[in-house]
């Protein structure tokens, strides 16, 4: 896959998306800036998760889902018939709302991806496991029990394990779909710190209902409403002086 040195790792232009007859995204355009955190906010059902999932073709798994428009990843059309979907999902990883570790050991969870991609050397796998767990800020808590079940970890640890699992295959972009909504404030704070740390080497797109979270950690924010990108811009601008009245009403809580 060819990547360019452009500032935008993903370019979304005039995207429309349907689930069967129901249109969920309307003419959505936005850039995803490299090595930045982009937050997507908006009321339930506004299309933010749909947009996020369309960035690594997760919506392919939904029957009757159809997308028009252009979505480029490093200059390559994500939706071109020639695009290797697995390759896209390797480079654009995803973290879900509920942590979903595999029912296996911590080590196997992290090494699962690299093994599928053909890494067999034990030492190399160990190195990937350690590096990924260090990067996901979990290593210190689990290094002495790597062969214990991942299901014994706390919710926050499981979520960081899922992040380690995504990092193990060296993605460029990490999509996070409300990654802290099932976590307590302490675990949430760790995930937020982690997202800010990851920003140095990766690009993060996060869907969140927590507006303070969006303002705390993101560089860019997109506010979506009824399937449209109502406003996109620097987070500071969106939360200080939004251009659109609708955005102002949403972020100040005067909505509906």
């Amino acid at each position: 896959m060819v990547t360019t040195e452009s500032d935008n790792v993903i370019e979304i232009s005039n995207v429309n998306l349907w689930y069967g007859d129901k249109q969920a995204l309307f003419d959505v355009s936005m850039p995803v800036r490299r090595n930045r955190i982009t937050a997507l906010i908006g009321p339930s059902g506004c299309g933010k998760s749909t947009l996020l999932r369309s960035m690594n073709r997760m919506n392919d798994l939904v029957d009757g889902c159809r997308l028009e428009g252009r979505m480029l990843f490093g200059g390559t059309d994500i939706y071109s018939p020639n695009t290797d979907v697995n390759g896209i999902r390797t480079r654009i990883g995803m973290i879900f709302q509920k942590p979903n570790p595999f029912p296996m050991s911590i080590r196997d969870n992290v090494s699962y991806g690299p093994r599928i991609h053909g890494v067999e050397d034990r030492e190399e796998l160990d190195e990937i496991v350690e590096r990924s767990l260090v990067r996901s800020a979990l290593w210190d808590e689990v290094h002495d029990r790597l062969d214990k079940s991942a299901l014994a970890l706390s919710g926050g640890q499981q979520q960081r394990l899922c992040i380690a699992r995504a990092l193990a295959v060296s993605p460029q972009v990490i999509l996070m779909d409300e990654p802290t909504s099932a976590l307590d404030p302490m675990a949430t704070s760790k995930i937020e710190d982690l997202a800010c740390e990851l920003e140095k080497d990766y690009t993060v797109v996060i869907v969140t209902h927590n507006m303070q979270q969006a303002s705390r950690i993101s560089d860019y924010t997109g506010f979506m409403y009824l399937g449209k990108m109502a406003e996109f811009g620097r987070t500071e601008g969106i939360f200080n002086k939004p251009k659109e009245e609708l955005t102002e009403r949403y972020i100040t809580g005067r909505f509906g």
Partner: peptide, 9 residues
């Protein structure tokens, strides 16, 4: 309340 936008200003 951690106000935002015009409220914060």
């Amino acid at each position: 309340y951690q106000p935002t936008a015009v409220d914060m200003r």
